[in-house]
Amino acid sequence: MKFTIQINEGPYQHQASDTAYQFTKAALEKGHEIFRVFFYHDGVNNATRLTSPPQDDRNVVNRWSALAEKHNLDLVVCVAAAQRRGIADADEAKRNGKDADNLAPGFRISGLGQLIEGGIQADRLVVFGD
């Protein structure tokens, strides 16, 4: 079965990203397909490679990057939400005249249409938020 996952909250502040990660991992282990993981609202903050959590805590961002690499996941960050919150890849940073970018490996920035497409193409959309 094909799943699209929507994540509305950033790391650490809320459990949403943790639950979504555990759900995604369990779905992959059961042989399901993850069509897309879409990061919206403060969920775009899951995509900054500049987080440095304490050593004895989980690294939410790296965990997503690693899962994406292992399973070739499509991790999509909403461009409009990302611009509001200062999440940018090199192209976005350049386009908006910023002096730095911060997108973590395995994520890509794209439009809201990717969420709608996720709803159309997948068998199930599961939303994690606050």
Binding site: M1, F23, R124
Partner: peptide
């Protein structure tokens, strides 16, 4: 249910 059970329910 565990996370696998959550996935099963969603499916």
């Amino acid at each position: 249910v565990d996370y696998a059970g959550f996935v099963e329910l969603a499916a």
